[in-house]
């Protein structure tokens, strides 16, 4: 009798668990899928129930978004800013992490502490001083050459992206370098490799798993970044998230909903594809870093 009772309680508990899990899953899947559906709807289909299946597939929404709303250009800008930012970040952060992890020198402790403190610096506060600093440099250059350089420059944006990602990246990479056995680099040095060769040929290839993690996280951070791009690129040249914001405002006014949702898909599709390909690495890598801003 008692056994039966606990059996049904167990069952009720199981049902409760599945209901909770499925509810949360639905609350995530439905809006995302809905956006994909909305992106191929005809503009006239947006009046009425939002839950209808698209009557026909309007790829013209995407063509419009790319051409009329400039999303094509913004896409290229985002690719450049993200790619260049990642390259600069790795070129700068890898050697620094290696040295901070492996070499004894004066000021090392101070450097490590400064990097840790950098984890707490919040980009949202410092974006205005960065903007003013660049504005000041621009004024200076303008007086000399008659043209600005630092604002509205995708390369400078990439540089700022890389700079703001340094503390987290160095923290993660140097943590990984510390776990690598010393024997390899000692052997390389005895074999007559210089420091640079040892680093590039032996140590950096060994750090590959943590480099992949760094690339993944920073790709997402740079690609999705909004506030720095908004502030440092006040002109017509924009990145995707900022362009999407503009598109949202413009499209709502003109009731071009299809194009708006097509723009949304254009922004999120690359990250979704990347995520599906590497989701295991991403969620494993998280425990490597342990934290995120």
């Amino acid at each position: 009798m008692k056994n039966k009772k606990s059996m049904s309680a167990e069952r009720l508990y199981k049902i409760f668990i599945y209901v909770a899990l499925i509810t949360l899953a639905i609350s995530i899947i439905v809006p995302v899928v809905w956006v994909f559906m909305a992106s191929v709807k005809h503009n006239s289909e947006f009046y009425g129930s939002p839950w209808t299946i698209p009557a026909s597939i309007q790829f013209s929404n995407f063509v419009n978004a790319f051409e009329k709303a400039n999303m094509g250009q913004y896409f290229i800008n985002s690719v450049i800013a993200t790619g260049l930012g990642l390259i600069i970040l790795l070129v700068v952060a890898l050697p620094a992490s290696y040295v901070l992890a492996r070499f004894e020198f004066r000021g090392r402790k101070f450097m490590n502490t400064a990097m840790m403190a950098g984890l707490f610096i919040n980009v949202n506060y410092i974006v205005v001083p960065i903007f003013l600093m660049l504005l000041g440099w621009d004024d200076f250059i303008y007086n000399l050459f008659g043209d600005g350089f630092f604002l509205d420059n995708i390369f400078v944006l990439a540089l700022v992206y890389a700079a703001t990602a340094i503390p987290f990246t160095v923290y993660l990479l140097s943590g990984y370098f510390r776990t690598l056995p010393k024997a390899y680099e000692e052997a390389a040095l005895i074999d007559g490799c210089g420091y640079f060769k040892t680093m590039f040929k032996v140590m950096i290839p060994m750090a590959k798993p943590s480099i992949v993690t760094v690339i993944l996280f920073n790709f997402l951070a740079f690609w999705n970044e909004y506030i720095i791009a908004l502030t440092l690129m006040p002109g017509t040249s924009k990145t995707l998230p900022v362009g999407l914001m503009n598109l949202m405002q413009a499209a709502r006014g003109k009731a071009e909903y299809g194009m708006m949702y097509a723009g949304l898909v254009i922004v999120m599709l690359p990250t979704l594809i990347l995520y599906i390909m590497v989701q295991k690495k991403l969620t494993q890598g998280m425990t490597l870093g342990g934290l995120k801003d």
Partner: peptide
């Protein structure tokens, strides 16, 4: 190895923070 990281970190993070 350290110089580029220190320069970028100082120019775009430390100085703006102090500026705040």
């Amino acid at each position: 190895c350290l110089a580029p990281a220190i320069i970028l970190f100082t120019v775009f993070m430390i100085i703006p923070t102090l500026n705040v």
